[in-house]
């Protein structure tokens, strides 16, 4: 029998994901590539059983970490251990729903954590393979802000943090364990609406796809590829991900195209203008500049 948090994969397929809920009738909900899907138990095999939550065992964050006002993500690695533990510190005044995706939008992308964290709560998730320094492996944190236990009518707040040593601070814990941690910008809290809050289910999934070439092409191939072919693969990846979003009935999808000579951005805008999905409408608008700078576009799917 599976439990929430278990990593599973399809028995007769290649998909893998995290069990989010146990459903009636020997079925489970599995979060796979950002989508929650319904599976019969017989269709899945267990890959990794997540250890029970031991949040209470987590030592308080030392004051020197400066975690007093932030939402903080970190991971620790014991000496001589291949695996690491993930920490989530919520020192904001709001409950936050955190969804952790590793390498989103890539064939190796996987969802590893999805849970509610209350104010002043700390969680420790055991037994992760750590990101490899310098590889630019993307850890994408999808955060939904909750207030008074009800979801605000704001879209999910998403942050992508790549693991680069300069982005993370290092802290030596007792016993030789090393904690790497990074602050996430505090989520923007929308003013409390006078209208009744929207139901949780009305928030449809959204997705952020990083189109940077190092996110979709392996390093060895990238080193010998022609610039034209790199651009072609980026455009193909964009079309595939947009197609999935349209078919799945998503409201919007964000593409990080970066800031270069503007060719990729122009190809995206040209495709949106042509819109092969009519009568479904596609509208491009700049993504949140505070998060992505000028290097991303949100496609609204109508």
């Amino acid at each position: 029998m599976f439990q929430a948090g278990d990593i599973v994969r399809e028995l007769h397929g290649t998909g893998s994901g995290t069990v989010t809920r146990i459903l009636p009738g020997n079925r489970v909900a599995v979060l796979m590539d950002g989508w929650e899907m319904d599976y019969a138990l017989a269709e899945l095999v267990l890959v990794n059983r997540v250890a029970p939550n031991k949040a209470t065992e987590l030592p308080s964050a030392p004051e020197s970490l400066g975690l007093s006002e932030e939402l903080c993500l970190g991971f620790s690695q014991a000496p001589n251990s291949e695996h690491c533990d993930l920490f989530v510190f919520n020192n904001t005044a709001n409950s936050v729903f955190i969804h952790l995706l590793i390498q989103p939008g890539t064939p190796d992308g996987r969802s590893v954590f999805r849970d509610l964290i209350k104010p002043a709560e700390k969680k420790r998730i055991h037994n992760f393979l750590p990101p490899v320094q310098g590889t630019g492996e993307a850890w994408c944190f999808q955060v939904v802000v909750l207030s008074n236990g009800k979801e605000e009518a704001i879209p999910p707040f998403q942050i992508t943090k790549r693991f680069r040593p300069k982005d993370y601070n290092k802290y030596n814990l007792p016993g030789g364990e090393v904690l790497w941690y990074a602050m996430l910008e505090p989520p923007v809290i929308a003013p409390v609406s006078e209208q009744p809050p929207q139901e949780l289910v009305t928030l449809r999934p959204s997705q952020v796809v990083d189109l940077h070439h190092d996110q979709i092409i392996d390093a060895a191939t990238l080193a010998i590829m022609r610039e034209e072919d790199i651009l072609r693969q980026q455009v193909e990846h964009f079309k595939q991900q947009l197609d999935r979003a349209v078919v799945a009935g998503m409201d919007q999808i964000t593409f990080i195209h970066g800031i270069g000579n503007g060719t990729l951005q122009q190809r995206i805008l040209d495709f949106i203008h042509e819109n092969p999905y009519q009568p479904t409408s596609l509208t491009a608008q700049p993504a949140n500049e505070r998060i992505y700078g000028q290097g991303a576009v949100v496609i609204l799917i109508g």
């Binding site: 392996d218 060895a220 191939t221 080193a223 010998i224 590829m225 072919d229």
Partner: peptide
Amino acid sequence: FEKTIAHEKE
């Protein structure tokens, strides 16, 4: 040779 293989696959 790893880059050669990557190129041939491409």
